[in-house]
Write a protein that binds this DNA or RNA. Structure first.
Lengths: 262, 262
DNA sequence: AAATGCGGTTCCACTATGTGAAACTACAGA
DNA sequence: TCTGTAGTTTCACATAGTGGAACCGCATTT
């Protein structure tokens, strides 16, 4: 599970992630089974995390669960270093104009993180969706971002994909995806042709700043039952405009104070 | 800032919190100014956090900001150990029935953390609100929860309040608050009489399980311009019912698997 | 009642990890 | 070129973390 758990902090975070992966309160012994750390070490890490309120321990049931302090920290993270707060009004507008599900995503490590969402049916941007992660190689947003990544970064991301075949359409090797990325650059936008989930299709565009750096991506998603890629194509100008607006907005927002510190 | 930063993990988290407190991308030197750690140590901690993707470093501007990995972890925390996902349908209903702003909060350390919200005006449960923290001693939800805390825990929470006078109505010492908590227990619900913010009032009830343990609290909030405490009082039965429903729901939800492991 | 087994906690000699003053580098402005 | 400031690296040193093993407490078995 844990990639490079050097240092105590790394180990602690690996354990935290381990607890998270259970998606429910979990006993010491269950963790011990999955963890690579010896009993005493694991125990101490859990103690530390609990004392730091990253985990909470329920003495009644003898279980650990994720601590609410994380929710606070994440709130700060979301507010200050995700595109979501900046993009919100534009997301709203795009959602209204298209009437379809709209995602805002960013790239982290080699995964896609959805930082905001507008739902077509239930018109609530659900907290429960922000924070969700997805694979980069078989989602519209993932491919849209990868297509505009500098070579060295792209290589790193590609190397870490799982290439799991979710559907018949999933691209399962680097060569296929690289070809696709070229096509995306030519076309200017990415598709998800039921590559991650059968029946689910989307059009996605990257959000890039003036210097061309990829900040994130937006997608308009729907199902093959309701629409087709051709129909979604009509939204491209709208999405592009939204992406531009968000990118422009970031220029003003990011570090306006920095130059003033003198 | 940092309370008990024993161990490397504690120090790292203190730094993380420090970065969060700036609410914007921050330079090394700015952090150094606020931090108690020597240059080299701080530097290494930042490196570690960055490598662990809890922070992200922007080489262009030389600034650190909160990492998106936190958003993922928090997603897990929110889903599995907050009341929010369980309470969601009941929150929806309460919001609809009252037409006022509804909060769902939990106690952490000595603070109130809002884990969900329904807004009266903009009817979107905003991610940006979940994760917000507030003082316990001068909010309806905070007092509602404290009123039903076991003595030892209560003492701990009280000891950590700031007793800052936000408004004329703020209770600024333990004695006053303890008297209020007695009144709350007698009455069965708590009020916020413009104690935190002028013009803002609310009624709050704790969410308690069968054994009486405090799980969280719900409140219905409004402004003195629109309504009065007397009017909010009419919502009490509705809120109580909601709290009961949520508490009942947790019984089924929490650790159903635990007993089966045999 | 004693024995067994199991989840959880503590001990302690050992050493990996983190520490931080100081030296150094890169760069901007004088 | 010189000087100062922000950021990075070094290295002798010691703290902090490690983990095998022993221990505890409780439930179940004999």
């Amino acid at each position: 599970m844990q990639t490079n758990a050097d240092g105590t902090v790394g180990k602690a975070l690996a354990v935290l992630e381990e607890v998270a992966s259970f998606e429910r309160p979990v006993r010491f012994s269950e963790l011990q089974g999955k963890s690579e750390y010896p009993k005493a070490t694991l125990y101490r890490l859990l103690q530390t995390l609990t004392k730091q309120r990253m985990l909470s321990y329920d003495p009644d049931s003898g279980t650990y669960s994720m601590g609410v302090r994380l929710v606070c920290l994440a709130h700060a993270a979301w507010r200050t270093s995700s595109l979501a707060p900046i993009a919100r009004p534009y997301m709203d507008k795009l959602s209204e104009n298209t009437g379809e599900t709209v995602h805002l995503a960013q790239l982290d490590h080699a995964q896609v993180i959805y930082v905001d969402k507008r739902n077509a049916t239930q018109h609530l941007p659900m907290y429960s969706e922000a924070g969700k992660v997805g694979p980069a190689y078989c989602t519209g947003v993932g491919k849209a971002m990868m297509a505009y990544l500098p070579d060295d970064q792209l290589a790193g991301v590609l190397a870490q994909q799982s290439w799991h075949r979710f559907t018949d359409g999933t691209m399962t090797d680097e060569a296929a995806l690289r070809a696709e990325l070229v096509a995306i650059r030519e076309r200017g936008h990415a598709y998800d042709r039921e590559e991650h989930e059968p029946g689910i299709i989307c059009v996605a565009l990257p959000i890039r700043n003036d210097s061309g750096r990829v900040l994130g991506a937006i997608s308009v998603t729907s199902s093959t039952l309701r629409t087709s890629l051709e129909k979604l194509d009509t939204f491209v100008p709208l999405i592009r405009e939204t992406a531009h607006q968000i990118a422009r907005e970031t220029q003003n927002w990011r570090f306006p104070e920095i130059k003033v510190t003198a």
